[in-house]
């Protein structure tokens, strides 16, 4: 850092400009080097005699992804057959489970966070819930809630609710006595305390929990479809593998990565809007 500034001061302007151009070029290329190497490695693996059987060539996987998941017809919203049959139901169940977890986690978290006695009563259970290997309960959920979409949705919700619940309690408890005193002295009505002090104050922590929950819900989505499923990406993983359809298997992995990236980007955008003040505060403290 200091070397660069020293450099800049000494060297004449034209070379600084050309260096900036070179740097802009390298910053566009650099991030692509490793992905390119990985694709090359993937291709090389698919050519190898031993493992080539299980590794579908990148080209085939790309073709298959495009043909399975995209369609030229506007009537299908440009979604391919597999996308409509498996991706959409998967995402629908994941979204439902995720939202259920957000509503329950934030709601319950605020109640517990505002009542130290309740929080202390249930703290060990929340810790236990966070540590449970939820996939182990998949069989039980089918038995308890039947075979349709509900056991899957509830399993996703049960699996991802804990980080939201834990972080909401933590966030609410972290609001602090100073702000509680302000609320008391100025006789702020409970509704305003809840919506304008507690909720915004806990929001950074809540968002951290929700982000963990979001990536966890993708995992739970896949797991919930590994058994007793008729559609979904998890089902497709098992089905393609059983039928030795390795391009199909790799296609699912690619789609899962794409879905994960898209969800992450959406999450970052929402956070940016809601927590703009928080970035301001932390930037100021740096």
């Amino acid at each position: 850092m200091s070397a660069i500034t020293r450099d800049r001061a000494v060297r004449p302007a034209p070379s600084a400009v050309s260096r900036r151009i070179r740097r802009a070029g390298s910053s566009a290329i650099l991030p692509l080097v490793v992905p390119a190497l990985l694709v090359a490695l993937w291709w090389w693996g698919s050519e190898s005699a031993v493992n080539g059987l299980f590794i579908a060539p990148p080209r085939d996987v790309l073709d298959r992804t495009l043909s399975d998941f995209l369609s030229p017809h506007p009537g299908d919203l440009f979604l391919g057959e597999v996308a409509r049959h498996d991706l959409v139901p998967s995402l629908w169940r994941a979204a439902l489970g995720f939202w259920l977890a957000v509503v329950v986690g934030v709601g319950l978290g605020i109640v517990l966070g505002l009542r130290p006695v309740l929080a202390a009563l249930f703290q060990p259970l929340v810790h236990l819930g966070r540590s449970l290997p939820t996939p182990a309960l998949i069989g039980v959920f089918f038995l308890l809630f039947g075979t349709g979409d509900w056991p899957k949705v509830l399993l996703i919700a049960f699996g991802v609710v804990w980080p939201i619940l834990f972080n909401t309690i933590d966030g609410v408890q972290g609001i602090g006595t100073a702000r509680a005193h302000v609320a008391s002295v100025f006789k702020i009505p409970s509704r305003d305390v809840l919506l304008r002090i507690v909720l915004p104050g806990a929001a950074p922590k809540i968002f951290a929990g929700v982000r963990v929950a979001l990536s966890l819900s993708l995992i739970m989505m896949v797991i919930s479809e590994l058994q007793k499923a008729k559609n979904g990406l998890g089902y497709l993983l098992v089905y393609s593998q059983r039928n030795f359809d390795y391009p199909g298997f790799w296609t699912v992995l690619v789609v899962l990565a794409v879905v994960g990236i898209v969800l992450n980007v959406i999450m970052i955008q929402i956070e940016r809007r809601v927590l703009a003040w928080h970035r301001g505060v932390t930037a100021q403290h740096d």
């Binding site: 002090i197 929001a203 928080h278």
Partner: peptide, 8 residues
């Protein structure tokens, strides 16, 4: 810094 609300 604690008695004012940074989100308002």
């Amino acid at each position: 810094s604690r008695s004012l609300f940074p989100w308002m």
